[in-house]
Amino acid sequence: MANFNEDGLKKKLDDLNMSQQSIQTLSLWLIHHKKHAHTVVNVWLRELVKASESRKLTFMYLANDVIQNSKKKGPEYSKEFGAKLSKVFEHLGSYRLDEKTLKGVNRLLTVWEERSVYSGDTIKELRKSLAVHLTTDLSHCIISLDLRANPYIIVNRRNSSKLKENHKPEKRELNNSYETITSKKSRRESLERTISEERSRRESESEVHISLSPTASPKDPPEPEQLIQALQDLENAATSDAAVREKIASLPVEVSDVNLLHKLQDTHAGKALHEEVECALALLESYNKRLAEEMEARKAVARMLHDYITHQKDLLAQAEEKLEEHRQKLHKVQKVRTELKAHLQNLPDISKLPSITGVGLAPLPSPGDLFT
């Protein structure tokens, strides 16, 4: 796995797209370099601000994936992103986001609140920051409703001095205007509640294009034995029961085709057909129940496989990190070894030096010899 640097991170963010594979791949890389969480979040924020409106949701999905999947390894990313989220949502609130982006960001806030990623007060403040750009739209809606209810009130509010004398309302109209003014607050509150309920309903019914990982609360991955057993159980599922399927295929046509009822000749034949229909019905109900159980089992196995693969990717990232550390240590050891070998080659061979204890060496000169 590549070493961390800001230029490399910026390039990866430039290449990021809305696909789940792209987001999860970069998320794993960022989690692997969690010790640089502070730098990562600063670069992420800078690039999000510069990104086009259509790509801001992609950056938010990346942050969500990193925050939730890094919980087990430490709180670094949760704290760093949490410190920047107020600025992020103030920035998003300054745009008139399209419906898809707004829906996706609101869905993120709902997920964070449901899974206690951040406190309820924090989520509330973030929603307020995001709702800033909705104020103008909401005021337009209120003015539009007031205009349909009483056009005179809107004209009078904008420029009462330009009203003509022949357009002055009568007493009854003034009473209606007064009632409109006094009920304006309640209508605004009702409209706000309606818009909020409709937005919540659409968010709950619609599915976000990208899956908000993790799809469930974080769990420990299944043991290999459990996963193997679950896969082996699927081999005995309903779709693999050839005997029952053959029995269903060999049912007589009369039990499923009402157009053949006219061929019944007497009561005895009708009773016999009724018994066949009852047997076929029991067989099909039992098989359908097994099929439904198989569908649930396959969904459970799919979740187990997802958790297991995610865990294995995590272990792979850790192993690659350890491998990189050991490679660096090996490089250092090899460098020291090379220097040591060169140093040894430059040392004199002691075995070839003349013996200082024998007569092979001349006596050392005296001090007098040295200075005369």
Rank of each mutant, 00 (worst) to 15 (best):
S186P: 00
R187N: 03
R188K: 14
R188M: 13
L191D: 00
R193T: 07
T194Q: 09
I195A: 13
I195H: 07
S196Q: 12
S196T: 15
E197M: 03
S200R: 12
R201G: 00
E205Y: 04
E205G: 03
E205N: 07
E207Q: 11
E207A: 07
V208R: 06
H209N: 13
S211C: 09
L212D: 04
S213T: 12
P214Y: 11
P214D: 08
P214R: 08
P214L: 12
P214A: 12
P214I: 08
T215F: 06
T215W: 07
K219Q: 15
D220V: 09
P221Q: 07
E223R: 05
P224N: 10
P224F: 11
E225M: 02
L227R: 04
I228H: 10
A230Y: 02
Q232K: 15
Q232C: 10
D233K: 04
L234C: 04
A237D: 11
A237E: 07
A238C: 05
T239E: 13
T239K: 09
S240F: 12
S240Q: 13
D241M: 04
D241S: 06
D241A: 02
V244F: 01
V244Q: 05
R245L: 13
E246G: 10
E246S: 12
E246Y: 00
K247L: 13
S250I: 04
L251M: 05
E254S: 06
V255T: 07
S256P: 00
N259K: 10
N259D: 14
L260D: 05
L260H: 03
L260P: 01
L261E: 10
K263I: 02
Q265C: 01
Q265Y: 01
D266H: 08
T267R: 09
T267A: 12
H268M: 10
H268R: 13
A272I: 08
A272S: 15
L273I: 06
L273V: 04
H274W: 10
H274Y: 14
H274I: 07
E276D: 09
E276T: 09
V277A: 09
E278N: 10
E278M: 10
E278T: 13
C279A: 15
A280S: 09
A282Y: 04
A282R: 08
A282L: 10
L283C: 04
S286V: 02
S286I: 00
S286H: 08
S286P: 00
Y287F: 15
Y287T: 05
K289R: 11
R290W: 02
A292I: 08
E293F: 00
E293G: 07
E294P: 00
E294H: 00
E294L: 02
E296N: 11
K299T: 11
V301I: 11
A302N: 14
R303W: 07
R303I: 08
M304L: 06
L305G: 03
H306Q: 14
H306I: 05
D307L: 13
I309Q: 14
I309H: 14
